[in-house]
Design a protein around this nucleic acid. Structure first.
Lengths: 363, 363
DNA sequence: ACAGAGTTTGCATTCGGATGCAACATCCGA
DNA sequence: TCGGATGTTGCATCCGAATGCAAACTCTGT
């Protein structure tokens, strides 16, 4: 036996009413308690027990007290599988996330989980690594009859339409699906990048480099095209290299750009913070560049390390709390009423001046 | 309607056999398909359908093919709640994590999730923020009748014994419960710290500072006492300040220690990487200290930022893959056989030399 | 063609809680 | 004291898949 079973169970059997013999010993061996056990102990019907745990049901305070007491004594917890079976509500929501190691998502995940649990909803975590895994993982999602899903991962349109067909509400997080026909929560990448570009150009930068994220990333596309577009409007040239949203991509990207421009680069726009951090480290360590004096580097996201003294990254911080709050409430609303129209809520990020980019003209 | 329902359903109705009328249109409206629907379409009994999806059941290849075809056409997925109800196996495992924002846990979480899904097990994520939430969150855990739990969070002994009483297997991750009576997977904190101390002392450091983690953290206690003990053995003095495992604690801790020692500090041992990083930044930015020339700083964990060029932290890296692999397999074994004895598997971390500490004597 | 061994199949029941309905209790005013 | 409005309660049934059992089937050797 792993542990001592020492809890005081079956002691408070002093209240009146019909009672069957209750053997504390059997607790440790018997099958988990059911509503029938509780009903028997409380001297009521199973229905009454059920109603006790179902808000809004008709039950007298007296019965309720008796039942709750019995339930507590027996350590009873309603079986979510049984109740889900009949109510067709699992109170489970799938949260699908691609790369948990992205530094940005853990915060999002923690927030979402907390907020969902405020609604009495638990999280079925689906961590996708490779695109190919999605189908296998989705099988699990279907089996558990989740009430909805929050998706911050690459999911094919077919897979998305599968959700729609089953009428399982979905909210995309920083993605965009099916021409705006799927509810989603996004941070305004284009606006954010335009702000960054405006500041950088206003400060006198002219020659730009951009390190993009993976091709299939929606946010990368948005951020890059937002920056490119604004740079074009302002008559600046920009060289583009591809990255993978990770630290090493920042390093590699900067090296490529330095080679391409022969070192003549005013500012570097990275599609996320992690690459910006990699680029800063590379600039300093490998090229002896003073950031931001010789080169301005900006990122996007506002992850925790961006604020660290070594970087003090100039970036656009996504309003994680507001975004997760929106995602959860949009989802919960659609679980209540699946016919709500799709809606795309876009949030503006906050420009963080930081100290990795010169954002004002030289006096 | 949010999406076009254009999938080719009900087209491949060319195979022989008794068939009822099948209306593709009804797919979009009707209730989700059950094993009875599949049975009817395949012209077999519900039992046959069930056996098709249950490995090891007796079913002929022919029937199997028919059923699978029908299931595919109808988009059928077995209802995990219904099957869990009768088999008493939910195929759910609770993964409880305290502070997801700790940089170390996302990696662990991703690994664990992936490995569990290899066993056909899904993850019910429980993200604890405050200790006080644990009870409310555990209620969810009990309702879903999880098959087991992997716990990397502060959980009270009472709560742990609750698992034991219900015979729900638990594996602790980097914790230690009930005098070794709970299966657990740990990284050898004491050994790791001793290695660090040995190296530091061997390199000539004598005056040490230690920044601890939160009082209630098991790993913090282990790491700190491991370091203290070895330092004492080697006749070195060490000042201790308290932290909270976050970046700011590194900063604050270093400031305290500098004040206490009047700047005369040879080496700083931080109970985790994040605090070490905070301390490095603080040393450089606020005290103009050259790390590691004037001060050696070491951490513990081996998180991703520790490898970044700005830090190149000297630390002990936990073998995350081996540890998660052990945690998952220990749990799965105990789900199969709950009577397996508790077991504590300890893994040695890997010393990463890095460049934030001078680990060899001055020539 | 048939007995017998081995396979495959369907029937009926089960898991634990939710809920419509009817029976019952309670309380109010007249 | 009684009618009726309101509030509680229990009964019976249902949700969807798994499974013991017995019936039906397949195949083998003779």
């Amino acid at each position: 036996m792993l542990l001592e079973f020492s809890e005081k169970i079956g002691q408070s059997s002093s209240h009146a009413g019909i009672q069957t013999h209750f053997d504390p010993q059997s607790m440790t061996e018997s099958k988990p308690t059911t509503s029938y056990d509780v009903a028997q102990r409380a001297g009521v019907s199973q229905s009454a027990v059920s109603r006790c745990f179902r808000p809004g049901s008709s039950i007298s305070p007296k019965t309720r007290a008796r039942v709750l007491a019995a339930a507590h004594e027996l350590g009873y917890h309603p079986n979510a599988m049984a109740s889900g079976l009949i109510t067709k509500r699992s109170n489970l929501v799938a949260v699908m996330i691609s790369n948990l190691t992205n530094l940005y998502y853990p915060e999002v995940l923690a927030e979402i989980t907390r907020r969902l649990s405020d609604h009495g909803i638990s999280v079925l975590l689906v961590a996708l690594q490779a695109e190919s895994e999605a189908d296998a993982m989705l099988d699990q999602v279907w089996r558990y009859r989740v009430d909805g899903a929050i998706i911050a991962a690459q999911v094919s349109p077919e897979q998305l339409s599968y959700f729609a067909r089953r009428r399982v509400p979905v909210v995309l997080y920083n993605r965009f699906g099916e021409g705006g026909n799927v509810p989603s929560v996004c941070c305004d990448s284009i606006g954010g990048e335009r702000q960054l570009v405006d500041q950088l150009v206003g400060a006198g930068h002219r020659k730009f480099g951009i390190i993009a994220g993976p091709d299939d990333s929606y946010v990368s596309q948005q951020r890059v095209s937002g920056a490119q577009q604004r740079l074009k409007e302002l008559g600046c040239e920009a060289l583009l290299v591809k990255g993978a949203f990770d630290y090493d991509s920042g390093d590699a990207g900067l090296r490529s750009l330095m080679a391409m421009t022969d070192g003549k680069l005013d500012a570097l726009i990275c599609a996320n913070d992690l690459m910006a951090i990699g680029a800063i480290d590379c600039a300093r360590a490998n090229f002896g560049i003073d950031v931001p004096k010789d080169l301005s580097i900006v990122g996007f996201d506002g992850v925790a390390p961006a604020t660290w003294a070594s970087y003090r990254l100039s970036t656009v911080r996504q309003p994680v709390r507001r975004m997760t709050e929106a995602a959860v409430s949009m989802l919960v609303e659609r679980i209540e009423d699946p016919d709500l129209p799709p809606e795309v809520r876009t949030f503006s990020g906050k420009l963080i001046e930081g100290a990795s980019a010169r954002l004002t003209p030289i006096a």
